Amino acid sequence: MNFFKNLLIKFLIKTFLIIFFIGGYTLAEDGINLDSDCLIHGQCSMDTYELLNIRDGEEANPTGFVNDIITGATMFIGVLVTITLVVSGFLFILAGGDEKMAERGKSGAKYSLIGLLLVIFSYTIIRAIQFLAAG
């Protein structure tokens, strides 16, 4: 059983590193100022809105700020839910004959899906309130 746990941990670490480095390379191409002068003097810059291609020519305002926070929090929680769902699935698959581990996997998947539904409903309610408040 320890062999499978070690294999799972190595797989997750390697997957994270691959996604991190490929994602970082893609971001570096699109919106981060990485020329030799900025690397030497340590004055590199990044424009998040230009990088993500949002707020094109739009003035900054409190509503946009709140929308950015809500969107960022929703995306972060969505990533956490996905990770917990995958880990719960691995626990269930690797349980073998261990009923306790299989039950942990099942309950983890159940609570991950409940969390996902809560996030979707709360996001929908917040957007509906914003729509109604805007008039």
Rank of each mutant, 00 (worst) to 15 (best):
A128C: 04
V87M: 11
G23Y: 09
G57W: 04
T82P: 00
T71C: 08
A134S: 14
D37A: 13
K10G: 10
E50Y: 12
N67R: 15
I129G: 09
I126Y: 14
I19Y: 06
F4P: 04
G89C: 02
G78L: 03
Y123M: 07
N2Y: 11
D37S: 15
Y25W: 11
K5M: 14
L132K: 07
R55H: 05
T82F: 12
C44H: 08
F20L: 15
L12N: 08
S45G: 12
M1R: 04
T74W: 03
M1L: 10
D47W: 05
I114K: 07
F76Q: 00
T74Y: 05
I83D: 04
D68C: 10
I126L: 15
K10I: 01
D68W: 04
H41P: 05
G31W: 07
K10Y: 06
F3N: 12
L80S: 07
F11R: 13
R104Q: 12
E99D: 07
S112Y: 00
A60H: 11
E50K: 12
R127T: 12
F92D: 03
E29Q: 12
A128T: 08
T74F: 10
L118M: 10
L80E: 01
L12I: 11
D35H: 10
N6T: 04
I77N: 11
G89E: 00
S122G: 07
I40R: 15
A60N: 06
I22C: 02
S88D: 00
A133I: 08
S45F: 06
S107Q: 13
L91D: 02
